[in-house]
Nucleic acid binder design. Sequence first.
DNA 1: CGAACGGTTCGGACGTGGCCGAAACATGAG
DNA 2: CTCATGTTTCGGCCACGTCCGAACCGTTCG
Lengths: 245, 245
Amino acid sequence: MTSTAAFAEIAALAGDPSRAAMLQALMDGRALTASELARMGGVTPQTASGHLARLSQAGLLAPERQGRHRYFRLASPAVAGMMESIMQVVADRPEPSRRLRVGPRDLAMRQARTCYDHLAGRLAVAVTDALVAGDHVELDQDGGVVTESGAAFFARMGLDPLAWSRRGRRSARVICRPCLDWSERRPHLAGALGTALCHHYIAQSWIRRSRETRAVVVTERGRRLFKATFGIEVAALDEERRPTP
Amino acid sequence: MTSTAAFAEIAALAGDPSRAAMLQALMDGRALTASELARMGGVTPQTASGHLARLSQAGLLAPERQGRHRYFRLASPAVAGMMESIMQVVADRPEPSRRLRVGPRDLAMRQARTCYDHLAGRLAVAVTDALVAGDHVELDQDGGVVTESGAAFFARMGLDPLAWSRRGRRSARVICRPCLDWSERRPHLAGALGTALCHHYIAQSWIRRSRETRAVVVTERGRRLFKATFGIEVAALDEERRPTP
DNA sequence: CGAACGGTTCGGACGTGGCCGAAACATGAG
DNA sequence: CTCATGTTTCGGCCACGTCCGAACCGTTCG
């Protein structure tokens, strides 16, 4: 079966440390230039160029010329999904008592970051918990749905749930997807609902994307609105969670 | 960030052709011996032993001693999900006009096969289509739900939908998951619902697992019941689908 | 137009990792 | 016990692929 070879090829492409770092850097859904990606991958531009060519050739990245720059983005949500699922395997394997060091930059990432097209980190988990607790969303391991109460809730926020159904034939119910967080090990909202929420946060200035990393910062307005809308005290998410002994 | 290295490690493990073939062989959810896997990987037992040790060490495989044999199975559904998602990327990338050759064994696989814990192939797609058409299941890109009508339908089959919710707190709705088929390029049922259906087929002798491959064969009883239950003419699935010009 | 910058191509050095032959263990069978 | 089978360890060979230095294109400035 020739598909096994193709499988191995894709996995091997993701399996090189430099390329993995580049792919991870693109997980915020935006496009980066070849040089930026070279820096993220910790290699020289020549080396990165080769990697990027191979990744594009294989259909993992979508290149775009723009002036004398060349921008690369993840080619499709399927690629992002693949990386998510690999991270999932990484997350739930028995860790050999390795306490992963948390640098200051890592802390910001754990707090709130983008994950391709939705929000991840403690903030995203808190929002998800609030939605589940408020009976606006039902989540299972395999997926989730927006309840009637949830549809009204999102409508009050100015979002139109029915517009999120991606397929042509709209489902009567709005279906979303959980995404297991590698830092929190808890599910948060992904799929059409997660994407719509993330767009909303940014469009309404609840959060701002950070320049260099996937971390996002909550604005003052955002603090107010996360509290008012979901009952989330953003400042309370800052404190480091102690490992239960 | 140390997690990038772990990510690359996992992906690299899946990225070797021999290991990929072994992992694929385990995608039917059963356990195989080291020698069987060596054969599947196209390498000698010594080489396979090394691979299997690394895969187990990394938490991708779960080894079990049994007499003088050593059985390996996929360590978790997360691993199966990872492989599914890699296949997904393989499936939807622009193929360079490569018409993948379909051997006779491949044909049986396309017809019906197991995919870790559920059924895949034309039969699975047909069942999914029938359930959607009958308004028993609603499917979106992100997930799916069983409707009220569907709950009754499955109950008539002797299945208990409410028992499928994997998490402690049962959801009011039964939520399932679509799995994009690499051969059909259409979604079919996975998740708790897909698993339950697959178990049901086997327990009630609708299908039988093949000894050597992931393909399954539909029994005479199965032909009757797929027709009676879902309106599926199993024989009609045999004919090769012509590419629409 | 020429300098500067971003990106790519080429060539050669280097190292990691896959592979098998041979041999050692372990387990079960005769 | 002895032999056969399944699995693992060791050693050495080989090749692929990564990496960078240097040089080469293309674009955008001053």
